[in-house]
Structure formats: C-alpha cells, structure tokens
Amino acid sequence: MKIRQSLLFATAALALTTAGMQPSFADTADKRIALSNNYAGNSWRQAMLNSWGKNADQAVKDGVVAAGDAFTTAENQATEQAAQIQNLILQGYDAIVINAASPTALNGAVKEACDAGIVVVSFDGVVTEPCAWRIAVNFKKMGEIQVDYLSGRLPDGGDLLEIRGLAGVFVDDEIHSGIEAGVANHDKFKIAGSVHGEWTQTVAQKAVAGILPSMPEIVAVVTQGGDGYGAAQAFAAAGRPTPIIIMGNRHDELTWWKEQKDANGYETMSVSIAPGVSTLAFWVAQQILDGQDVPKDLIVPFLQIDQADLEDGLANTEPGGVSNVEYSLDDAKAYLESVN
C-alpha cells in the first residue's frame, strides 16, 4: 500500500513538473499509453508499428502524453497476448491500445484492464468485450465498393475473376462476402472463377495463370490487396487483354498502374486500409483520457486511390510498402466530430 501511495505521489509530482515546464494543451500530459500488438511479421504490420512509434515519440516530445510504448508479443498467440495485457495493467498504463490476436480470447484480460480503470481501445483486430472501444475495419464494405465501382465502369456487366486471400481467415471471409453482396446487387456481373492469392503477388500470379485457360472473357478482377500486380502479370503472360484489375495500395501495384496509365490510359481504382490507423487509435485513446465522449464502435475509413490521385498515392508509398495515412491530433478530432 505504502509503495503504491508513494508511486502515486511520484507520478503526481512528475506531472506537476512537466506541466510547469511547458505549456501542455491537454490534461493528458501525465498519462501513459501502451500498444499491445500480436504480430509484426509483414510489411503492413511493420508500417503500422513505424507509424505508431513516430507519432507516439512526437506526442511525448510535445508533452501531450507521458509515454506511448509499443509491445509486440513474441508469438502470435492469444494466451500470450492476454498475459501481455495483464503485464501492462501492472505497469500502470492509463490506456492500452490493442491489435488483438483473437476477437474473443482476450476478453478476460480486457475486462480486468477496464476494471482497473484503464481505457482499452482495440483497432484492426478488435475485441468483443463491451467495455473496450473498437476501431473496426469494414472489410465487407471493402468488397462491396469494388463491385460498385465496376458497375459504374462497365454498364454491360460481364464475368469477374475473384482473387481471395488465405482460406479460413476472418478477413478473407468478410471481403468475400462483401464481393458476393456486391454481385447480388449488380446482377449483370457473374463471378466466373475464384482463386486464393494469399495476399501475395507471386502466389496470386501462379493461381491466376492456372485458372485463366478455363475462363471465358474476364471483364474485371476483384481482389483483396497484395494480389493485383500478380494478376496483371498472369494476364500478360497468357496474352489476354488486361481487364480492370482492382488494386490494393501496394507499391508494385501502383507502379504498374502508373505505367499502364501513361502507356494506354488504363483506368482502375485501388483500396486498402492504411497502416497508420494505429495513430488514429492512439489519438482516440488520448481523447478518451482527455474526457471526451467517444462512441464505443468506430469504423476506419478506407484509403481509396482513384485515377486522379494515383500520382499522389504513389508518391506517398515507400517502395515495397503500402500507401499510408497517418493521423495527427487534429485529424483524429475531425474524424471523431464527423462520426459523433
């Protein structure tokens, strides 16, 4: 008890000194935010952690918060992340931002954090525990808007080729159901075939090359991101006309699109989630700590690149990476106002 009291005292004293030293524009200057992340093994996650790190360092430097540390579990397992969250509770963080390994298996640990008075914000991989905030990605919508776009471009409809992700994964299921819903809305389209591209260009290229000989004329390819460039290569290798291929904001995809656009005026669109959504989660947590009223369920806006913004999009994408948008405190406030 004594230790806890003196700790409290120490944090209070620290808060006083920091508040005295620089003009803090929020009452969160003494608050500490942690990121609990379950996986760091692909370019999207790396970009996400990078965005978080840059943003949190700046926020600490500006005196908006006292800490913004990122923790990644050694293995992508729910039990491990639950233990990690419990450790973060012990370390006395005021808010924990989570990209969860499982939507449900962390609920116990999340509840414990809430009971300890900690603000929990989950994003991308969200948790179902009601006391936590959720910044979810509407993957279903991401599938639907692809077909909506195609419907505008191709009034006569036709046969589509669908490239799916990894079988049995939640994201793949959701995007696929969105595409199905889109096709149901626009019944001039028909899905002639579907392959699993595993969100990887090389796998997608092989899979598409394998199914193409048995396909009728394909007017467009609906995708999940990370597979558009491979599909384009497969169509070129088979000597077939290039259909409208929806892209997924990867650097190689945008580069290919730009080349085609310059060569023959090729038109398409590209859609994915910006890894910088971690910075949105950071600011949402900060705003909640600041006492703002934030709805529990938020939806992340997509990052959609249209024909007109291709050059800008390409410029904002690192080679080998994914197009990114990072949120500042003002962006996050504007976003929250728009949903409130």
């Binding site: 293995e75 397992q77 729910a78 039990t79 491990e80 639950a82 499982s102 939507p103 449900t104 298996a105 962390l106 609920n107 116990g108 640990a109 509840k111 179902t128 525990e129």
Partner: peptide
C-alpha cells in the same frame, strides 16, 4: 479454467500449451 479466465473461446486459444 482458461475459458473462465478468457470469458470466451477461440479454436486456437491454447496451441502454445
């Protein structure tokens, strides 16, 4: 015990065990 602590389940919840 695990499901009690986690409050809900996941088919891959305990693979580490």
């Amino acid at each position: 015990t695990l499901v009690g602590l986690a409050t809900s389940a996941d088919a891959n919840i305990a693979l580490r065990y």
